[in-house]
C-alpha cells in the first residue's frame, strides 16, 4: 500500500512538472508537429505517385485497390498537414498581445477555427471513402476551398500576427520614451537644445510610425469588411516602415542613455 501511494505521488509529480514545461513549449511543439506532418506528407506523396503509376501501367484490380489505399492515405495526410499548419498559425497568433486589437485578433481566430473545422470534416469524408472514384472529387473540393478561403485566411493570419507584433513594439517604444523623458526632466539642463532635439526627433518617429501602422490596419480592416483578397505585400511595406523607425529610435535611446 505505501508503495502504491509512493508510485502515485511520483506520477503526480511527473505530470505536474511535465505539464508546466509543455505549456511553455506550445510554440515549439506546434512547430515540430507541423514539420513532422510535412515529412509524412512527402513520404505519402511518394507512395501515392508510385501506386498511381503502377495502376496506370497494369490496370488490374489489385493495383487499383493499392492506388486507392495509397491515395486515400495521401489525402488524409494533406488534411493532417493543414490541421497542424492552422494550429501553428493559431499558436503564433495567440503568443502575440491580442489586446492591441481584440476585434482583429478574435476575427482572425474565428477564421482559423472555421478552416480547421472544414479540414476536419474533409478528413472524415476521405476516411469514409470506399473506392478510387470517390477521391478525385474530394481532392477538388479541398483545392477549391484552398483557392477561395484557406489561402486568404492564412495570409490574413500572418498579416495580423505581424501587425500585432509591430503594434506591441510601438507600445513599448512609447513606454520607454516616457521613462527616458522622466530621467531627462530630473536634470537641471533638461531644457538644453540636445534634449529638445532628441525629443523632437522622437516625436517625428512616433508620428510617422503611427501613420504607417494605421495604414496597415486599414488595409486589414478593409479586407475583413469587404471580404477581399488580402495584400500582404502592402501591409508588410507599412509594417517594415514602422520597424525601420523603431530601429532608429532604439539607437536614439542608446545615445541619450550615455548622456543622462
Amino acid at each position: 500500500m505505501p508503495r502504491t501511494k509512493l508510485f502515485l505521488f511520483f506520477l503526480l509529480l511527473f505530470l505536474v512538472s511535465s505539464s508546466q514545461i509543455s505549456a511553455r513549449n506550445n510554440l515549439e511543439e506546434s512547430s515540430n508537429n507541423y514539420k513532422t506532418e510535412y515529412t509524412n506528407y512527402r513520404n505519402n506523396q511518394e507512395n501515392y505517385l508510385k501506386s498511381k503509376a503502377a495502376y496506370k501501367s497494369y490496370q488490374t484490380v489489385a493495383s487499383k485497390n493499392d492506388a486507392f489505399l495509397k491515395t486515400r492515405d495521401y489525402l488524409k495526410q494533406v488534411d493532417s498537414l493543414y490541421l497542424t499548419y492552422f494550429e501553428l498559425l493559431r499558436t503564433i497568433l495567440e503568443s502575440k498581445n491580442g489586446k492591441n486589437n481584440e476585434v482583429l485578433f478574435l476575427e482572425t481566430k474565428n477564421l482559423l477555427d472555421s478552416e480547421t473545422r472544414f479540414i476536419s470534416d474533409h478528413k472524415i469524408k476521405v476516411e469514409n471513402a470506399k473506392n478510387l472514384e470517390e477521391l478525385p472529387p474530394l481532392a477538388q473540393e479541398l483545392k477549391q476551398r484552398l483557392e477561395k478561403e484557406i489561402m486568404n485566411t492564412s495570409t490574413l493570419s500572418i498579416a495580423v500576427t505581424d501587425y500585432l507584433e509591430t503594434a506591441s513594439l510601438l507600445n513599448e517604444f512609447s513606454d520607454i520614451s516616457s521613462l527616458v523623458q522622466n530621467q531627462i526632466d530630473k536634470r537641471e539642463d533638461f531644457a538644453s537644445s540636445l534634449f529638445q532635439n532628441w525629443k523632437s526627433e522622437l516625436l517625428i518617429l512616433n508620428n510617422e510610425s503611427q501613420s504607417s501602422i494605421e495604414t496597415a490596419k486599414k488595409t486589414i480592416d478593409n479586407r475583413l469588411v469587404a471580404n477581399n483578397r488580402i495584400d500582404y505585400e502592402e501591409i508588410s511595406i507599412s509594417l517594415n516602415k514602422v520597424r525601420e523607425r523603431m530601429a532608429r529610435a532604439s539607437k536614439l535611446f542608446e545615445e541619450i542613455m550615455k548622456v543622462i
Binding site: K56, A67, T71, P136, A139, K143, S154, S157, I158, T161
Partner: peptide, 12 residues
Amino acid sequence: LSLPSVDLNLDF
C-alpha cells in the same frame, strides 16, 4: 509560415 503547397490533381 506561408501556406504549404500540395498536389491535388488526382488525374487517374
